[in-house]
Design a protein around this nucleic acid. Structure first.
Length: 653
RNA sequence: GCUAGCGUAGCUCAGCCGGUAGAGCAGCUGAUUUGUAAUCAGCAGGUCGUGGGUUCGAGUCCCUCCGCUAGCUCCA
């Protein structure tokens, strides 16, 4: 006897095996028609998968209205895509085809290189399959049978997976839809007619089982929604994301430049981009001073010996620019990180426990030879400047210092309106042996970090075992940008490795007059100015808040008759510390306004004979439009207040 | 690094089956002196990413390299 509890509180009883779809049909034929999948207790199952014969289950019939249903449908759509590809290219070898955020993909091994020109053909075939509305049929068989079965179908990747990843499974399931059969855990929609609007998006290479030493497959990406409207909305969003791409805006707004003639991944900050960076630097600098950090400056290259001591060389050799060899055999490395130089400062004199914590900060430029395929605008480059600092402290101070770092990062993100982020607390995997240091110390440090995090307001704190660096646990701030992409920006990392006797052997003299080993904390709220600015450009769609705007005000005259007054106003604005330019061209005011609007200038001061006579300025707000005339002093105060408060008036969503 | 696609004026793009390069915007010059998102006219601007090949002839076809884009792998 099976008791089925439905969401409305009603209970149905069955003495025979029953499937969710049958229960839906009992409730009503329209519900049965609309059934996409079922939630049985906490599991999403196919609507045709039988329920247990007895006991109690909670059952939810999922339709297009339920968010969980979308994933099921997309997975089915991936199958339909694979089926379509197989119809067009019968010799295709199937790999994996899961759903992902916003869509799905399927990996194929196929001679013919799939290009976008093939998409319409594939989509047309998919439409045919959807229209045929055949059932997805779940079949289970035992492992040996499945190996033989897929062997006969000559799906060698499936066989390989059965014999490798699934070798411990006694039973496996597959799904059949017409002539198409695929090894698959499911669940799937009952029939292909439930698949709504879909579209193929892109094709790219992907390694079999994510292993770069294995063969490369063709990965076909697509998306699907229940309604055409939802699909359109999603495609619009992709367009919007393209529009605010920092590489595009960076060029349009003349913020930065990357010239392949100089080198890939090497960033030029143009005057306007440099203003943004300088403001960010000033902001951070003030925060650092407030928090007891001491700024230092150190060289951007160093003797290779230093990096041999730190362990970075030759271990990370393939992501470094090769050493510079001098005639006398000396070798220098373009520094890939700043810590060894800060350690050099720590070691430059004997340290007492009274000196700790010692917080050394530097906007340190580093170089890493990232693989060519990794480079992306400002967010992944080969030369970048970290807002770096290293804290040297006692074990007892770790928790407080860690808290301070988290707080500063939170403050910084909040000031910039980056409200959507999560914190990843990376701890060690106790099963692993790759970690350095005493397990007891790790234990203590991790407990301290968890303790600190639990008392703080950290959105979506996620503890990830095995995600620690080999030298210590860490907290990463993962910020979500407008496109929904996640960026690892800020980071706080504990380090028990570099201070250890095997590395630099750092010491301080404790109250007991004996030497002790300090703990190091690496931290960078932005990560790097390059990546952070790139993300900010997209976040604000190029329209920076007033305090960051490269050009804050543009003075423009209605006709050249007002030029003298305009220049006077411009001079006074500049004297008041505002970043101002003037437009005195023989253009109509409409054209000047249009240009300033397109350049995303926050404020325009429109000046003509009237303003000149009254000593006023007509203020135009980029967002709100004409604010009318006001005395110059009043306008200056208004702008300065907005700058002072670092007001974020508008984040284009 | 790998796979695929792309590379034409400062920018966005057109250029058919191979016949010797075109538009808009920006720029420059001149006229216009204008009241809240584009005034008009003229001028100038390109070894078609690089090197090679096929051809009477290559922006167009083939190969090489470089770069960019998407994804994969990587990210101290």
């Amino acid at each position: 006897m099976l008791k089925v509890h439905l969401p409305d509180g009603s209970i149905k009883e069955y003495s025979q095996r029953v499937r969710p779809l049958e229960i839906a049909a009992e409730i009503g034929p329209r519900l049965a028609q609309a059934t996409v999948a079922a939630q049985v207790d906490d599991q999403i199952l196919g609507a045709d998968q039988p329920l247990p014969e007895d006991g109690d289950v909670r059952l939810r019939i999922l339709t297009a209205k339920d968010p969980e249903a979308l994933d099921v449908m997309r997975h089915s759509c991936a199958h339909v895509m694979a089926r379509a590809v197989m119809r067009l290219f019968p010799d295709v070898q199937l790999a994996f085809g899961p759903t992902i955020e916003n869509g799905y993909y399927y990996d194929f091994d196929l001679e013919h290189p799939i290009s976008e020109e093939d998409f319409p053909k594939i989509e047309a075939e998919m439409a045919r399959i959807v229209k045929e509305d055949e059932a997805f049929e779940r079949v289970e068989m035992d492992h040996a049978e499945a190996v033989q079965f897929f062997g006969e179908l000559r799906q060698r990747l499936k066989v390989e997976h059965l014999e490798d990843g699934l070798k411990d499974q006694r039973q496996v399931s597959f799904y059949r839809q017409g002539e198409f059969i695929d090894l698959c855990r499911g669940p799937h929609v009952p029939r292909s007619g439930l698949i709504g609007a879909f579209k193929l998006l892109s094709v790219a290479g992907a390694y079999w089982k994510g292993d770069a030493t294995k063969q490369q497959l063709q990965r076909l990406y697509g998306t699907a929604f229940f309604s055409k409207d939802d699909l359109e909305k999603h495609l619009k969003q992709l367009e919007e994301a393209k529009r605010r791409d920092h590489r595009l805006l960076g060029r349009q707004l003349q913020l930065f430049l990357i010239d392949p003639a100089v080198g890939s991944g090497l960033v030029f900050w143009l005057p306007k981009g440099a203003v943004v960076r300088r403001e960010l630097e000033n902001f951070l600098y003030n925060e650092l001073i407030k928090r007891g950090y001491q700024p230092v400056y150190t060289p951007v290259i160093g003797n290779v010996h230093l990096y041999e001591t730190s362990g970075h060389y030759p271990y990370y050799k393939d992501v470094q620019f090769p050493p510079i060899e001098m005639a006398d055999g000396e070798r220098y490395l373009l520094r890939p990180m700043n810590c060894p130089h800060h350690i050099t400062i720590y070691q430059s004199q004997p340290r007492s426990y009274r000196d700790l914590p010692l917080r050394l900060a530097e906007f340190g430029t580093v170089h890493r030879f990232e693989q060519s395929g990794e480079l992306t605008g400002m967010t992944r480059v080969r030369g970048f400047t970290q807002d770096d600092a290293h804290i040297f402290c006692t074990e007892e101070q770790v928790a407080d210092e860690f808290r301070g770092c988290i707080e500063m990062t939170q403050h910084v993100l909040k000031t910039l309106g980056l409200d959507e982020y999560r914190v990843r607390l990376g701890l060690r995997d106790p099963q692993e042996t790759k970690y350095v240091g005493d397990p007891a110390v790790w234990e203590k440090a991790e407990a301290a970090l968890i303790g600190v995090c639990s008392t703080m307001d950290l959105p979506q704190l996620k503890i990830e075992r095995g995600e620690a660096a080999f030298y210590g646990p860490k907290a990463d701030f993962v910020v979500t940008d407008c496109i929904g992409r996640e960026w690892q920006l800020g980071t706080v990392q504990l380090d028990y490795n570099l201070p250890s006797p095997q590395r630099f052997g750092l010491e301080y003299i404790g109250p007991d007059n004996a030497p002790h080993q300090p703990v190091m904390i690496h931290r960078a709220p932005f990560g790097s100015f390059e990546r952070f600015t790139g993300v900010l450009i997209e976040h604000f769609a190029g329209a920076f808040p007033l305090w960051l705007a490269p050009e804050q005000v543009r003075v423009m005259v209605v006709s050249q008759k007002a030029e003298d007054y305009g220049r006077e106003v411009q001079r006074r604005l500049a004297a008041a510390g505002l970043r101002v330019s003037g437009d005195y061209r023989a253009e109509k005011i409409g054209a000047k306004i249009r240009d300033a609007q397109l350049e995303l200038i926050p404020y325009m001061f429109v000046l003509g004979a009237r303003e000149a006579a009254e000593g006023k300025v007509a203020v135009r707000d980029r967002l709100a439009g004409d604010l009318g005339a006001m005395p110059l002093e009043e306008a200056v105060d208004k702008l300065q207040a907005e700058i002072q408060n670092k007001t974020i008036r508008h984040v284009a969503k």
